[in-house]
Simulated assay, not measured.
Amino acid sequence: MLSLSDTTAVVSALRTAGCVFAEDEAELILATARTPEELATMVDRRASGQPLEHVLGWAEFHGLRVLVEPGVFVPRRRTEFLVDQGLAQVPGASVVVDLCCGSGAVGAALAAALGDIELHAADIDPAAVDCARRNIAPYGGHAHAGDLFEALPAALRGRVGILAANVPYVPTGEVGLLPAEARDHEPLVALDGGGDGLDVLRRVAADAPRWLAPGGCVLVETSERQAEVAVETFARAGLRTRLAVSEELYANVVIGVRDQVVQADQVV
C-alpha cells in the first residue's frame, strides 16, 4: 500500500505509466489524497490513462480551483486567453453567458473577475450542466441544459455583454488522433466539431447578434488553420470581427462585436 509520505513510490508508478510530468502530478495527487487507500486508487486511475483533473476532481483555471467530474470536458489553460479577451473587450459587462460551458470554468472565471453580474451557463450534456451548476453557484449563476441558444431564457436576447462559446472544433475525422485522455474520457459532443470542425461555430455566429447587447461580444476558440474561415463566418453574421492570438498558449480566439442595433423583428 502506498504511503501518503512516499513521494518516490508515487512518482515511480506514474513514470512507469508514461506520465511525462510525474513529479508534478505526484505532488498534486499526494496533496489531494486523504488516506493511503484513496491515494492508491488515484494513482491507479491516473496510471490507467484518466485525465489528471478527473483523478483530482478539480482543475486550476484562471486563478480558480474548478470542480471537474468524470465524463466532463477538462478546461484547457489556453482557454484562459479567451477569458482575458472577453474582459478586455467588455470590462463592464453585466450579463455573461458561458455557452458550451462544460464545467462552467469560463463563466466562473469571468464572474470572479467582473464581480456582481448576471451569469448563465448552458450545455447540451446534462453531466456538464450539473458540474457547471456547482462551479457557478458561488456567483449566483444559472445553469441550463439544451442545444446552444435554445437552452437560454428568452429574456436574455439583446442583453448579453460577453458571450463566451468554447465550441467543439476538432474535425470529425481527427477525433481519433486526439490524446487518449481526451478521446477516451471526455464527451464526444465536447470535441467533435463536424466535417471541418466549424459546424457549431457557424451556428453560434448566426444567432449571436440576436443575443448580444449593443457593444457586446461573442468569443470562440479555434485552431490556427481554421481561424481565417472562422473570422469570415463571424463577419458574414454582421459582427465587427478580429482574431486574437497567443503564441505562448497556442490560443486563437475569434471575437465578434455587435455595434449596430439589431432590428426589432430579430430580437423577439
Rank of each mutant, 00 (worst) to 15 (best):
D265K: 02
Y169W: 09
A230G: 08
L30K: 10
V95T: 04
N135V: 10
A208H: 06
A22F: 13
F234N: 05
A180M: 08
I124V: 15
L249C: 00
G115N: 03
T79D: 12
R34M: 14
G115P: 02
V262W: 05
H185L: 06
V200F: 07
L64I: 09
V267P: 00
R159S: 08
R203I: 03
Q260G: 02
G158P: 06
F149I: 03
A235H: 01
T8P: 01
G146S: 00
G176T: 09
R76A: 12
D184W: 09
C131S: 12
G256C: 03
G57Y: 11
V175L: 13
E150M: 01
V231N: 03
G63I: 08
E232V: 05
N252W: 15
L2W: 13
R15L: 11
Y139D: 00
E27Q: 15
F81N: 04
E150Y: 00
G115Q: 05
L56Q: 12
E228C: 02
D259V: 14
T233I: 14
W58E: 13
I162N: 01
A132G: 13
E186V: 09
A180T: 11
G57D: 10
G18C: 13
E221W: 05
E232P: 00
L219S: 04
T35Q: 13
L99V: 02
V267A: 07
A132V: 08
E181R: 02
V20R: 15
A111C: 06
F61D: 09
G195H: 14
R210D: 07
A59N: 06
V200N: 02
V74L: 02
V220C: 11
G216Y: 00
V189D: 05
R236Q: 12
D130R: 15
H144C: 05
A213F: 00
G197K: 03
P214I: 07
I136R: 03
D84N: 03
P153H: 04
G71M: 10
L30P: 14
T8W: 09
S12W: 08
G161R: 06
D44Y: 03
A213D: 09
H54L: 10
R210T: 04
T172E: 04
A182M: 12
